[in-house]
Design a protein around this nucleic acid. Structure first.
Lengths: 196, 196
DNA sequence: CAATTGTACATAACACTGTTATATTAAATA
DNA sequence: TATTTAATATAACAGTGTTATGTACAATTG
């Protein structure tokens, strides 16, 4: 990647991390990177190109968060650790999280390349959550299962960003989430347990 | 409410229903309502005021969706019907749904009045989901329980709006959701069942 | 009734957004 | 050396939400 291109991208990342989408204007990125506004268009596909890069960054963060060494852990332990990692990522990179889940700019739609990265991330999630299922489970079941856990996870994160979250005085939001998910995982394990 | 004020609000609602947030500019609302742009500021608090009204409309739709006659139904049946109603509302009023969950305009923040309506809606949800719990359950438990089901629900809706939703060829998204929620409800019922 | 006040309105402007046409400069190739 | 290509700078365009200014009409008051 070009050095100017990298400079633009890192400027965008910094502004995004500091102030979210509101701080990301074409002119502010250009100024921070020390280039002219037109540079955003010659090096990237305008603002959409910048957002695509951040979108991809976001899903790479998701993948990193749910993958790790799995030695000597039960399936439930592995999935619960992935869940912890997911929540930690959502807290540490709220801007990226909001972007990849459409809570930033309704005008932005990810490019095909960006969507491909998103699907790869979902593939990673399927692999992790499939540990809860019998080994001979088919793809449809694995997808259903991954979606189930992802929806539960994402629902907690998304609602935490919501105004109603303030009605909970206790700040143990993600503890409640992990409890509920643990219960759900037990239900999944019980449902598909191999009758021996 | 003033007749002009109603005309503005209904113009805004129509534009919003037809084209979502993208179709909602101060000038387009004014034109549709047959008033000057400044009218949006004299009758409402500018665009923020308009969005507040639509936000409140959205949560009223949520409340309507999860409330109905409950005669001769088990707790599980009532909650499952509320869940069906919730999904139906999210499909029929996607624009409102996206608005109240921050997927429309990141610059918009609901007013205190709008937030109060949101909390009332959450109260309704607590009342419905509390049917799954023992009658002597305390408020913290009821809140935890309502959040649990709401997160699961909302997660499915939010992910359906996401680009990754296209990896599921089968269009039975909400059937999968209802299945998963039914299983979770059973787990809740089992956990808090009165030992007799 | 006449005078004053206050409200609703229209026009225009401001500061901002993403994007692009035009012109200029520097670099690389023939 | 001459020509072509790439990167840059300036300015402009069409939008956005918002506001200042000026005007017309209605209501209230002396």
């Amino acid at each position: 990647m070009n050095i100017t291109k990298r400079k633009i991208l890192s400027a965008a990342s910094e502004l995004f991390l500091a102030g979210g989408i509101a701080a990301l204007s074409v002119r502010s990125i250009a100024k921070e990177a020390g280039v002219s506004t037109i540079g955003i268009y010659s090096h990237f596909n305008g603002k959409e190109g910048i957002l695509d890069e951040l979108y991809i960054q976001g899903f790479e963060l998701v993948m990193q968060a749910i993958q790790f060494e799995q030695e000597k852990l039960t399936a439930k332990q592995i999935v619960l650790r992935a869940i912890k990692g997911y929540f930690a990522m959502a807290e540490a990179h709220e801007g990226h999280y909001r972007l990849i889940f459409g809570e930033s700019d309704s005008r932005y739609a990810p490019s095909d390349e960006a969507k491909a990265v998103a699907e790869t991330a979902f593939g990673t999630l399927i692999k992790v959550t499939a540990l809860l299922l019998p080994q001979d489970a088919n793809l449809a079941l694995k997808q259903k299962n991954a979606l189930e856990i992802w929806a539960f996870l994402h629902g907690y994160v998304s609602l935490k960003h919501h105004a109603v979250a303030s009605v909970f005085q206790t700040p143990n939001w993600y503890s409640l989430a992990e409890e509920a998910l643990a219960m759900h995982i037990d239900a999944i394990l019980a449902k598909y347990a191999v009758q021996s």
